[in-house]
Design a protein around this nucleic acid. Structure first.
Lengths: 141, 141
DNA sequence: ATTAACTTTGTAATGAATACAAATAAGTTA
DNA sequence: TAACTTATTTGTATTCATTACAAAGTTAAT
């Protein structure tokens, strides 16, 4: 689960077009950050990482943009850390997430296929989120 | 996954003793609410539900108590809804949770046994959280 | 070019959670 | 039981991520 696909700007713009989102400079920068850096960043991390290259970028724009991108199905929220929303690229093969309790990094993991069988009859499942927490190989020493 | 076990006050006090937590009136009331009402409440819901019976109860006491109970391993946080922590009884068979996107209720579900196999080698897993979202039978109509 | 619609930005507001210190309760020792 | 010590509760004040809002800026269309 660690193939690092590259999302060129052209491709990101195309994805946004297909999803009906206007590819503004800021939105492309934010989506590119999420899609290519793959650190599952918080809004604040996105803001801090981008403000050097985009000095006028505001925190509110980051929030606005991730919400627009989420409504368009391009970005997904990870509720893996209380009090801090993390963002991930949505159109990806189903996967789960592991957060290291020491370095706080988030790693992509496989998603067991049988998953929704856990749900009793009569319920209709929209989303499945699987979160692991523990220590990553580096932090185990 | 819907057996409604009853936790008597005596039993809750015993659990707290075993866990090394002083069973104050407030703590017993809060743990009893979580263990017996099983609505996976937020801190605010606990506060509102208990303030009639315990008029001096304060919101801070609810936060203090759930943290003490969590550190003692009796209560577990559910990060199923962004911006609102929910609380569940910890010493229970492993299970997952389903939140209805319409009525916001949280239901206990089974936990597929194979789960931690999704994690790549070298990682050490402490906790596994599985959250489903969708519509519950009642809200489907 | 003008107009209309959308996007960005900064500031102000919200609200869950935490920090803190005073007040209260409970346990301990004599 | 009283005096003392420690733990718990409570209210207020603070923090901080997120949202609301309105003004300024940008883009698209006619």
């Amino acid at each position: 689960m660690t193939e690092s696909e590259i999302y060129t700007e052209t491709r990101l713009v195309e994805m946004m077009h297909n999803a009906g989102v206007r590819p503004s400079v800021q939105r492309v920068a934010i989506l590119s950050h999420i899609a290519n850096l793959r650190k599952h960043p918080t809004a604040d991390e996105i803001f801090n990482d981008l403000k050097a290259a985009y000095p006028t970028m505001s925190r509110t724009t980051v929030y606005n943009s991730v919400h627009v991108l989420m409504d368009a199905g391009l970005v997904k929220e990870l509720e893996i850390e209380s009090g801090n929303m993390h963002y991930d690229l949505a159109p990806q093969p189903r996967h789960s997430h592991f957060m290291c309790r020491r370095c706080r990094r988030i790693f992509d993991m496989a998603m067991p296929a049988v998953m929704p069988d856990a749900v009793s009859g009569g319920f209709s499942v929209d989303t499945v989120d699987l979160y692991f927490k523990g220590l990553c190989p580096e932090c185990i020493e």
